[in-house]
Structures are given as structure tokens and as C-alpha cells.
């Protein structure tokens, strides 16, 4: 699977083209902002009825990644569900699918701002989690170092001869990694927008996702 390997806090990590992160030494797989049930939340609030296949599509990609990496530990870095109660509205098929994925692995749900309460699925629920020198939480805590978080859905635009290409991306500096959103219907925040610009150091790297995982230096904010 296409990935970009880099060193963070002395550990080798793989940024996968799918937008997930893999830590081979720990056999640990991490995704952020799955936003299960987003289309449905939109409909409940009087918005339009978007194609209701986002949960299915997100699960399909998640499942492919997990079986490819054969990870022992899975961390979902918050906002796994688009709202409190979304897990109850999930259809049986999706419910069973998650249960199957959880079999034989440690599965950690980190709390996010969209899904703070406990949810009716297996796995362990935590506010944050630390493995060795690296901590995992949903929203970055700028006082910590060696931290992996999500929440902002970073994306970056690149000029290719005559066209602009916009991709979801990881953004990485020596202290922290902010992960792209994994959910099918998630939008993005430009890495050149606040607060991402202030959070990340000037010399940070963006790792583009899509068909390939490709690193670029973060473009300069104008």
C-alpha cells in the first residue's frame, strides 16, 4: 500500500495514502474524524438528504486498511461519530461490521467534540492515550510535544501546471502530527488558515493523501 515513512519522536511512522497512520513497531493503526452518520445528521437538521452511503464507504476503506496492515491496535482519534447517538442510529450491517473489525484487536475510541459520551459499541473509551513517548488526543494541546491529533481536517492545494489540486493531508512538525479526516463526507480546512498556521511550525511538512502519500513542505502563508 502506498505510504510515506517518516521519523517522529524517534519512531518510524507510515502516513498511508488513505489518510490513516500506521506505527509498525507497535503494530498500531490510527484514523481520525470518521464522522459516521454525517449524512444522516444533516438530514435530521432539515438539510438536504445526501446520499446515505458515507458510513458504508468509510467502513469499506477502514476495513481494507486494517486488513492490509494487520494491526493489533486500532485508535480512532475522535469524532468517530458525527453526533451523540449516531451509533444508535447506525444500521445493523454497519454495527456488525465494526464488531467484526474489533475482534482480536485492542480498539480505542478517543473522545472528540462531536461524540463526547460513551457509545454503545465495543472497544475502550478514553479522553486521550499515550504509547511510549507519543500521546493521542482529538484536539491538539499546544503545551504537549510528541502528540498526534485530528479535529481540523487539514487539506492543502497545489498548483500543477494549469490546474489546482486540493488534497486532504497530514501536517507534521517535530512536536506534533495533525491527521486528515478519514470520513467520506468530511470537508477540510486549509493548512494556510488559522488556527492551523499558528499551531504548526513554519518548517512543517504536509503529506498529501489520495492515490499516493506525497510529502511537501508546507506552502508559505501569503
Amino acid at each position: 500500500m502506498s505510504h510515506y515513512a517518516f521519523t517522529f519522536q524517534g519512531e518510524i511512522l507510515h502516513a498511508l495514502a488513505s489518510g490513516a497512520l500506521f506505527w509498525p513497531k507497535q503494530n498500531l493503526f490510527c484514523v481520525s474524524d470518521l464522522h459516521f452518520g454525517k449524512a444522516q445528521r444533516y438530514a435530521t437538521q432539515g438539510g438536504s438528504t445526501l446520499p446515505p452511503y458515507d458510513t458504508l464507504d468509510t467502513l469499506t476503506r477502514l476495513s481494507d486498511d486494517i486488513s492490509n496492515t494487520m494491526a493489533r491496535t486500532v485508535i480512532c482519534l475522535g469524532d468517530s461519530f458525527d453526533r451523540v447517538g449516531a451509533s444508535d442510529d447506525m444500521d445493523d450491517q454497519a454495527h456488525d461490521w465494526i464488531t467484526r473489525l474489533q475482534a482480536g484487536r485492542d480498539w480505542l475510541w478517543i473522545e472528540g467534540n462531536h461524540d463526547p459520551g460513551p457509545i454503545g459499541l465495543g472497544g475502550i473509551h478514553l479522553a486521550n492515550h499515550t504509547v511510549g513517548s507519543i500521546s493521542f488526543r482529538h484536539i491538539t494541546d499546544q503545551r504537549t510535544r510528541g502528540e498526534i491529533s485530528g479535529h481540523y481536517h487539514p487539506k492543502v492545494s497545489l498548483k500543477l501546471s494549469k490546474r489546482n489540486v486540493s488534497k486532504r493531508c497530514f501536517i507534521v512538525d517535530e512536536d506534533r502530527i495533525i491527521m486528515p479526516a478519514f470520513g467520506t463526507y468530511t470537508g477540510g480546512l486549509s493548512v494556510l488558515s488559522e488556527p492551523l498556521v499558528s499551531i504548526m511550525k513554519r518548517n512543517s511538512t504536509c503529506i498529501l493523501t489520495g492515490l499516493q502519500a506525497l510529502p511537501i513542505p508546507r506552502p508559505n502563508a501569503t
Binding site: 445526501l50 452511503y53 464507504d57 467520506t184 463526507y185 470537508g187 477540510g188 480546512l189 486549509s190 488558515s193
Partner: peptide, 23 residues
Amino acid sequence: NGRQATFSSDILYDTLHKYDPDH
């Protein structure tokens, strides 16, 4: 505010094409 307020129509198109091609 820089954050995308609307859904990417490309993603919706791809999703429909994949799961509901006769929509």
C-alpha cells in the same frame, strides 16, 4: 471562515456513482 461549509460535490458524485448508479 475558510472551512468548507458545503459538501464537495465531487465526493457526492463519486459516492452516488459507486453505490447508486441509477439515481
